[in-house]
């Protein structure tokens, strides 16, 4: 057993948990968190793909891709959270007489 197998399996498991959260949960913030877990899970897969048995150096390409993915996910999260806040305000205003 090597670290890449262990973390590869963990990454797929995290993606699966996130997938379940994104499609099965109702709470808006929680569904978004599920999506964030998916992105970390996909990050694990790419980083495992970059890992080489020491002392060989890892492949830098997937590392760069994951950094890009992290920033992209933050952008999407920020947009979704803004929608959640605005929608909450509108629904809140409607609930009041």
């Amino acid at each position: 057993m090597t670290p890449d197998l262990i973390y590869g399996a963990a990454g797929l498991a995290v993606f699966g948990i996130g997938l379940w959260g994104a499609i099965a949960l109702q709470d808006r913030m929680r569904r978004l968190l599920g999506l964030k877990l998916c992105s970390v899970g996909a990050g694990f897969v790419l980083i495992v793909g970059a890992w080489r048995e020491p002392p060989a150096a890892p492949d830098p390409m997937p590392h760069a891709l994951v950094i890009t993915g992290i920033v992209v996910m933050l952008s999407a999260t920020a947009a979704a959270l803004a929608l959640i806040r605005r929608l909450h305000d509108l629904e809140d205003a409607d609930d009041r007489p």
């Binding site: 993606f15 998916c38 992105s39 899970g41 996909a42 897969v45 790419l46 793909g49 390409m61 997937p62 891709l65 993915g69």
Partner: peptide, 8 residues
């Protein structure tokens, strides 16, 4: 993206 990772 997951598919991209698996392909890599």
């Amino acid at each position: 993206l997951l598919g991209v990772g698996l392909i890599y």
